[in-house]
Simulated assay, not measured.
Amino acid sequence: MFQGFPGSGKSYLGSALAKQARQHRYRAHYIRMPDLEESWASARDRPAGREKWLRKYAAFTLLVIDEWLLDTPTDDTRTMLLELLERRYDATSTVFCTQYAKKDWHQRLGGGVHADAIMDRIVHNTIWIETGEVNMREHTAAAN
């Protein structure tokens, strides 16, 4: 889990981790949460699309999801996340890049049973890396 302020390097670290994993011949994929949701929505229109989609994303040895919980997920997205994380649990690695502290996740996931189940599959075996409070984009712009 890479957690920190905007511009603190979360996306850079997640992307670099996926790239390095691919160079070592691991099946790795980096995707932004909005793109993951869009991909899931488009899978609905294909025959057996959602099952194929779940198999594809569950099979990555490393899946990096950036912009985690930037927007509150819909019911359909929560269902997808629960199924995807259940398939990946204890079998593969998932990295989340987020601005939000763990204490805010339950509410951002919409509360309730789905939020409980999603968090249960994430928080117990997670390594948390705080990327800090410095916005490197702002810092670099001010230096120029």
Results as ranks from 00 to 15, higher is better:
99 Q>V: 06
132 G>E: 07
114 H>C: 00
85 L>T: 01
98 T>E: 09
96 F>D: 02
106 H>K: 08
111 G>Q: 09
123 V>K: 13
122 I>Y: 08
95 V>N: 09
113 V>Y: 13
114 H>R: 10
128 W>E: 15
107 Q>R: 15
90 D>P: 00
85 L>D: 01
131 T>Q: 05
95 V>F: 06
90 D>H: 14
102 K>E: 15
133 E>W: 01
106 H>G: 01
105 W>R: 04
126 T>I: 07
95 V>T: 06
101 A>C: 02
116 D>G: 06
104 D>W: 00
125 N>F: 05
127 I>Y: 15
99 Q>G: 13
91 A>V: 07
92 T>M: 12
110 G>L: 01
134 V>T: 15
102 K>A: 13
125 N>L: 11
104 D>N: 13
125 N>R: 15
86 E>K: 10
132 G>S: 07
98 T>M: 11
105 W>C: 03
105 W>Q: 02
101 A>F: 03
101 A>N: 08
133 E>I: 06
107 Q>E: 15
91 A>F: 05
86 E>D: 14
129 I>D: 05
132 G>R: 08
91 A>N: 11
103 K>I: 04
115 A>H: 09
111 G>M: 00
97 C>R: 00
104 D>M: 12
123 V>F: 09
100 Y>N: 06
115 A>Y: 11
87 R>A: 12
124 H>K: 12
98 T>D: 10
92 T>V: 07
120 D>F: 06
104 D>S: 13
85 L>K: 03
96 F>A: 04
86 E>V: 02
97 C>V: 01
101 A>H: 13
112 G>Q: 10
109 L>P: 06
123 V>E: 14
107 Q>S: 14
118 I>H: 10
111 G>R: 05
122 I>F: 07
91 A>M: 10
110 G>D: 04
101 A>T: 02
92 T>D: 02
93 S>N: 08
133 E>P: 00
96 F>R: 01
111 G>V: 00
105 W>Y: 09
87 R>T: 00
114 H>T: 03
127 I>V: 13
89 Y>S: 11
122 I>D: 05
101 A>M: 09
108 R>L: 11
107 Q>N: 13
103 K>W: 00
91 A>T: 10
108 R>W: 03
101 A>Y: 03
115 A>F: 07
117 A>C: 07
96 F>T: 02
88 R>L: 05
128 W>C: 06
109 L>C: 08
92 T>F: 04
119 M>H: 09
96 F>P: 01
